[in-house]
Amino acid sequence: MNTLVLNKDKKKAKKDILNIVWLLIAIIIISISLFPIFWMFLSSLKTKREAASGVFFPANPSFEAFKLLDYTFFNSLIMTFVGALISVSLCVVINLLAAYAFARLDFHGKKYIWAIILIPMFVPGMTILVPLYLLCSELRILDTLFVLIIPGVAQATHIFFMRQFFLTVPKSLEDAAKIDGANEFQLFLHIFVPLSSGPSFIVALGAFMGYWNAYLWPVLVVERESLKQIMQVVQSYRPSHDPNWPLIMAASLIATSIPLIIYFAFNKRIVDSLKISGIK
């Protein structure tokens, strides 16, 4: 009897120790994921000298560095956000429409058009960079919001991904609406769009991140101050010698905060959505 209790106690103690070990591992993993972001935040509160000397905590944490952020920075923050919203809406609408047609409609030349639509999946962005730049310069659309948004709106990967999803929708749903006399557009709008909120969210998130974090394309096509994109401005805060680290970190922090807010607002959705985006 006694030994049995003792055994139980032993087992419990063993479990407790194991739990502590697991918790420790969890804390280590979380700290590694989040530490660089925390360091960015901490450095933005330091004085220039503190940041340059590598002190861990600032003696007098202050938001001085944030005050140095100029009009160009906040203007680019707003412009990039507006551009991202337009880009996301166009991206979702255009790619969903095309994906629907390839998944659910029958038409002439479908196979060939599908093959053409997929070509961008095999062409890296760098390969078309120069000709695309020359094309836009010939069209005289450089230095406009248009050139930042439109060339990246139609994405083969998004169309492919959404088509795979539309293929899985059972035909019976469609047939019921067809009997009621709905046309293809009504069918798409009232049956397929509501069903596809999950995968559309992935497309929207991908479009947003792609636009927000873009660097090379804006650098090539935008010179006007008022159109500068956020990553362009963040990068420009960093001269090769004597960098003002608190200022750079303050700019980086604000530039990163918007994707982070989106991430934490839709945390569960994003984590769950990766399950479907992975392979299917």
Binding site: I94, N95, L97, A98, Y100, A101, F102, L105, D106, F107, K110, I113, I116, I117, I119, P120, V123, T127, I128, P131, L132, L135, I150, P151, G152, V153, A154, A156, I159, N183, E184, F185, F188
Partner: peptide, 22 residues
């Protein structure tokens, strides 16, 4: 015609901004 309307925006943009530059 229906399919054309669905596909046209994406098809046009891909041809114009990816395939032609390629």
């Amino acid at each position: 015609l229906t399919a054309f309307l669905f596909i046209f925006p994406a098809f046009f943009l891909i041809c114009f901004f990816v395939i032609y530059p390629f």
